[in-house]
Design a protein around this nucleic acid. Structure first.
Lengths: 234, 234
DNA sequence: TAGTGGTCTAGACCACGGG
DNA sequence: CCGTGGTCTAGACCACTAG
């Protein structure tokens, strides 16, 4: 483990252990450097991470402070890549459809998925027994040569990371609000015309290729989202 | 202007000028250091900025590459603090209500707004003549002592930044999908029961105090969102 | 195995906040 | 004014990619 990761983790633990709240002051940089026996840049990288995660904020000339970590259990991060598995408890999947197609639908190709054979997986995902999203995913076979029903029932991303040893690097999302159609409504246990958030997402591997294009249709009754924007840019 | 800001800006311009697309390679770090006559850490900070903005990605041992800057005009960033003014064209406001209250509503106080006198502003915002959001904002008078109808009709944030010379540092958002009520629907030009995204946001100043709690109700027909997640953490 | 980005250090100097 | 975080340098060494 890298030093700055260790420092970031230790600071997070320090906040929990000392039960620090919004606005409480953390040790100053020189003290942090001494505490963890690292140089300034390691501490800076750690603080930068925590900044992005919304854990702390810094005031030049004053100090480093803890940020509101409001009770976000049950909320879903709209930004974090891996989606729900991070913040939601007991995520399970029900497989609706699983096929190998000659080519992806047009929208998936437009989002960058290669125009060649791909797996299609339609899953209904639940947290704590409640259905929260209908997910239609396309995985290009050129990157993911083999996929089975068993893998798809579990976590595909875990399989890609651990089984194939590939790294998921970043993603693009386009989102809109709309009404559910009848088919979606039935699957989600809602009514036609009920509101939903539709997310079309493209996932990229470490070399910058799209390997997965997904469409997510959320259940409005069982989903809430959060975002803690960090210090800003430009 | 700081060196790393200048470098970041120059690289962005370099990408535009050379019309670089997704996957195209940028000059290597040593070349960038030479091009801009700065040290390694200045370049690193610049690249880190661009990484967060979704402009580039790096592959260790290989190079620095341009990321898809798909045509996002008309889309709204869900993450960027200042909201729409950044990416949307021709934003105008219609003032629906403006008052000075003895105290904010309960939800605003729960989000961190002081339980004392505050301004209430209800605005209908449009881009290119189309109404896209109904915004109800509460500004605590302890931080924003004076607000007028004229200021509220323009950009309150610009007034705070330039007029009051205060810095808006970060924000928390909670979001959910739901149905419009009759009153909201009328204002947005939609029908009762139509879908919407509701965002409750708390804005913080540089010392970590909440000065603004806002509720945003989006018009689903005129709004689409995007997000380009950067390299991830932990 | 050469070459690229990543981590980390020690230290100089700058810029802001608060007494 | 002092103390804090912020920027920046030069350079050592590590880790990964690709030919």
């Amino acid at each position: 483990m890298k030093k700055y990761q260790f420092v970031a983790q230790s600071i997070t633990k320090y906040i929990q252990d000392n039960n620090l709240k919004h606005g409480d002051k953390l040790p100053k940089m020189t003290e942090l450097m001494a505490m963890f026996k690292v140089g300034k840049s390691a501490v800076l990288q750690a603080l930068s991470l925590l900044d992005q995660q919304g854990v702390i904020y810094k005031i030049q000339g004053s100090g480093i402070f803890v940020r509101n970590s409001s009770n976000l259990t049950g909320y879903m991060s709209l930004v974090q890549n891996s989606g729900f598995t991070q913040t939601l408890p007991d995520v399970t999947s029900k497989l609706i459809r699983f096929d190998l197609l000659q080519e992806p639908p047009l929208w998936a190709h437009k989002r960058g998925l290669p125009d060649s054979a791909c797996y299609e997986a339609v899953r209904l995902r639940s947290t704590a027994g409640k259905i929260f999203v209908l997910e239609t995913s396309y995985f290009t076979q050129s990157e993911i040569p083999f996929l089975s029903k068993e893998i798809v029932k579990g976590s595909i991303f875990a399989y890609i990371r651990n089984g194939l040893n590939k790294e998921i690097r970043f993603s693009d999302k386009l989102m809109k609000i709309r009404k559910l159609n009848l088919q979606e409504a039935k699957l989600l246990g809602l009514k036609e015309g009920d509101p939903t958030l539709e997310v079309r997402e493209a996932f990229y591997l470490s070399q910058g290729q799209v390997f997965d294009a997904s469409k997510l249709v959320y259940n409005y009754q069982n989903t809430e989202f959060f975002d803690q924007s960090p210090d800003e840019l430009v």
